[in-house]
Design a protein around this nucleic acid. Sequence first.
DNA 1: CTAGGGTTAG
Length: 781
Amino acid sequence: MLRLICQRTFQCANFAPHCKTNARISFSRCGYAAQAAAAAPLGQHPPVHAERPNSEFDSHAYAAMLQHCIRNGDSNSAMGLHCRILKKGGCLDLFALNILLNMYVKAGMLSNATTLFDEMSERNTISFVTLIQGFADSQLFVDAVELFRRLHREGHELNQFVFTTILKLLVRMGWAELAWTIHACIHKLAHGSNAFVGTALIDAYSVCSHVDVSRDVFDEIVCKDMVAWTGMVACYAENGCFEEALELFSQMRMIGFKPNNYTFTGVLKACVGLEALNEGKSVHGCVMKSCYEGDLYVGTALLDMYTKFGDVEEARQVFQEMPKNDVVPWSLMVSRCAQSDRCEEALDLFCQMRQAFVVPNQFTYASTLQACATMERLDFGKQIHCHVIKVGLDSDVFVSNALMGVYAKCGKLENSMDLFVESPNRNDVSWNTMIVGYVQLGDGEKALALFSNMLRCQVQATEVTYSSALRASASLAALEPGVQIHSITVKTIYDKDTVVGNSLIDMYAKCGSIKDARLVFDKLKQRDVVSWNAMISGYSMHGLGLEALKIFEMMQETNCKPNKLTFVGILSACSNAGLLDQGQAYFNSMVQNYDVEPCVEHYTCMVWLLGRSGHLDKAVKLIQEIPFEPSVMVWRALLGACVIHNDVELGRIAAQHVLEMDPQDDATHVLLSNIYATARRWDNVASVRKNMKRKGVKKEPGLSWIENQGTVHYFSVGDTSHPDMKLINGMLEWLKMRTLKAGHVPNYSAVLLDVEDDEKERFLWVHSERMEFALVVITGD
DNA sequence: CTAGGGTTAG
């Protein structure tokens, strides 16, 4: 066992900073006296020394004086005493020498401690443990382990102090797994029943998630004290055994132990894990009774709990009661505000904290920047960027990722890219931030390019990566890359992931493969509200309203609660499929049964549904009932309905509303012109066209495109530029004959120009989508 | 004379 530790020790010897070699002085030479004198200026010697300069002390008296100095943290006086002892020829016994050694350790003077240790004529376990502790406190783990090895080799007693010290050392070195080797030794020497040793073991096993072993150790402790109970509660809480943590907590209280601040932090963590608000509140009650509310850690745990449960008021109350000089509770508050749509409050807290002279850390900056990103406040973001550079935190990966997020969210992708390129330690989140940035900007191609670059650079993709790349494919309506990403995820653990699954459903739906979307949906192990919403709106956008409603019925059999977006999907499904009665029923039950307040999107769907079903009057009435200012979308929906039902007057009013809010909207101009055209009011058509020209509004030409064997073919109306135009025309001619034979009658009214019917017919046939379709038939794709 | 437990995160 020990050899194993030592081998590891030597392997990492070059990583440990070493101060032993620095100016090692010997206490047996006069050099020490000068150093001690320099360290202890005149008049600062301990009172005992000053009062009785000539008296003789025995070892015991020196020991007592040294202890006095340690208690007062007065290392200067202690060194003066040591100097005096040396002058008299060093008359200390082992007991006093150990105290002296502890003095140097506590004062952080490790080279002095080491020299003293080396020059002691005899040492015991206490000497070793004292110095091991010193090495451990100074992060000199290699020296600490080496000293432990020497203690064992030289045959000193292995007592409880040795075991607790070495176990804690292993945990701090990240070698908690080696606890079992020490445990074997402890078991042999029957120290396991000791509460100190047992608790150290529980802690070590807790770190490497051996909860059951921890529990066995706990059960073997003969006299369990408060710390042992607390350690076991913390072990359960940290390893996700929240019920067990609460159970043990109540057991210890029944036995009569009074929990302390450490116990409370552990048990509160368990309450958070269980999402048990009531238990948490009763623990909060105990905290107040035991007067631990002002404790930093207990307070932080309470803050964590209330902010996670969304109890903003209670969180504020706790925060009020807390000490305000530590950065952690401030950071926690800022971060929770930033994550819960209270971004102004986050910024406000950041300012308050600076006024209270609390120095922000990387967490504070990252959260504050997150708030800036959400609010798209580039000005604040830039200010904080300056702060961050000033305090040198711009190289922190959390902070630089958050900065990239701010610039990306504010549309400054170039700035994000600069930070990304310059970032000395970028990680997967940095890549994800850039990919998401491009997706949000609508540049799916750049997002996908970045994604493949990321894979090439062997950066570990996460569920966020895959879901963003899938979003990019969806936004491009590009099935091919979407399928490729799907097949990559199948090779990883992420194809079972809910977030990735949801993006797959959305991607397949938006790329036209609704069957594949359903396949992914059916295979999902864990469906959340997003999964249901994706499937519902998928069916809705494919015009499969009844399928969408079936999914909603399935959803109601689970305990997944529909949200705002669910009903946007449902209502648009109804309006796409013309399901008037169902739509109205769902709109009503949304408020009555599901506690979802109708928003603009819901009203838009309903206006469109009522309008397209011919109830233009009801649509207008609904618009009047909207408790807030109706958006452009609502008026566009009404306008669309007016176009269908040729209601020129209402259409004109609706278009007027749209153009008040969005004067450059080309689609509305065209729709208005179309209404007039349908009514054959060509003079009005002309005036709309003239108006468009005057305002510089241009109709974007409709484009259709299709990917065939790696090439994308684009078509616009009447376009003759395709190299296979002759073939396409031939195919169009053939299709025309076949459809006419099958009884198709061209809808000339769909062409809204004042031309003869045969010209209208030609327009209909060279429509971009038809040409695209013809090409598909030709190539047999 | 030596020793045991804890908070925040994109």
